[in-house]
Design a protein around this nucleic acid. Sequence first.
DNA 1: GGCACGATTTGAGGTAACGCAAACCTTCTG
DNA 2: CAGAAGGTTTGCGTTACCTCAAATCGTGCC
Lengths: 232, 232
Amino acid sequence: MDKTARIAIVERAKLFAGLPLETLSEAAETAQVRVVDKGDVVFRQGDEAGHHFIVAWGRLRLDQTTPDGKNIVLRFMGPGDLVGSVAVWRKVPYPATPLAVEETRLLVWSEVRMMELMQAHPPLAMKAMNMMGGRIEELQERLQQVATQQVERRIAATILKIAGQSGRKTEAGVEIPFALSRQDLAEMTGTTLHTVSRTLSGWIDEGILEGRRSSHLVICRPHRLVEISEQA
Amino acid sequence: MDKTARIAIVERAKLFAGLPLETLSEAAETAQVRVVDKGDVVFRQGDEAGHHFIVAWGRLRLDQTTPDGKNIVLRFMGPGDLVGSVAVWRKVPYPATPLAVEETRLLVWSEVRMMELMQAHPPLAMKAMNMMGGRIEELQERLQQVATQQVERRIAATILKIAGQSGRKTEAGVEIPFALSRQDLAEMTGTTLHTVSRTLSGWIDEGILEGRRSSHLVICRPHRLVEISEQA
DNA sequence: GGCACGATTTGAGGTAACGCAAACCTTCTG
DNA sequence: CAGAAGGTTTGCGTTACCTCAAATCGTGCC
């Protein structure tokens, strides 16, 4: 990966977006590159947090295992997303495990490097706070959903959010361009894979979705899904 | 409130804890004071976010209203807690309404004042990120609870957390020193007031709790409550 | 290219928790 | 002090969703 490519990636990251070229350049130069194969993890929940990561290409699923062995999917992450930084700043172990659902390339900064960058470029700290604030808002929204809405609405809202983050327009509708299993959706919405399967089957029968059996989901009638996610 | 008192309050706030006296002093000098009567709000969800607040005395309940009119309690806040800052930094409207459950006194900084403080005292930004990270962790934990655990465990865990934050030891056990209604607990755990009432009644019968009918809750057998919150 | 494995679908039955409703108690108000 | 208002308790019927179970279908591996 040459320097121009790195700068392009750094620039796309929300943490660096809009900052002066000098900052981007320094960030790009101090980063290392790491490739993670599909199915491998970037680090594991409980590891000591020593590095900041930004996704360059690919996609990660952020998993959290509970003390009693259950698993929940916190979010999917794609190009530009920041991974691990919250734990590094807080000096606590990584609270979750990012697993590559496709081959993924990341830029990596050590704790010290990133600290130096931030001290040299103060707007970075503001950006970082902004991003963390966004995570807080997202989590509050999901908490509210899981606490008050019934399963069908939560599944609809979750699919729409993923489509909004990563969806691609095709002739048939909006496609989610990576394997998103029923189990994944169940672990994101706090339900079981059976309920997700039943619900999606219904929507496929109604022509709202396409994608029985593991192919990538396609949302044919997004507006209908919005209605379901907002229905009383 | 004289300057020494203000400094004491500022020092107790997690945002300023451990910082040099010079920083504390400047923070204390630039703060204004605001008193909010029981039942009144500090600001309202949706208001433009222009001020940072720190609780000096008293207690706030942070409420969020959903588009379809349901209410959830995000958290209770007491002395030292920071209110509203996430929204100010993100330049978005306040996402929730802090309501005083008892008479509460706050220190207030305008957006500009706090920005100046942060620029003059860089460690403040680090502290702020740390605090936001703590909120993220807390929210992830609650999300995991609501998504995977059954109601009884969630109620037990919620009571224990509140007791840990605000509880006071008495002869009878650990007392929660403010009015915490069944409705509040329901809106924190994502259930109904009926289910909370039934559950607490059971625990009171078993001698785990005291506090039928609105008096302050007292946890007589905290260890038993921990067991319930961890039970498979 | 056949076989095994994992993902998905679908059915049937059970239950935790909800929703409604009514009674009860405490506190505030005039 | 009576009445009203708000929080709480409790019963009962309902249901959304889970759990268990089995069949089915892709898909990857040798």
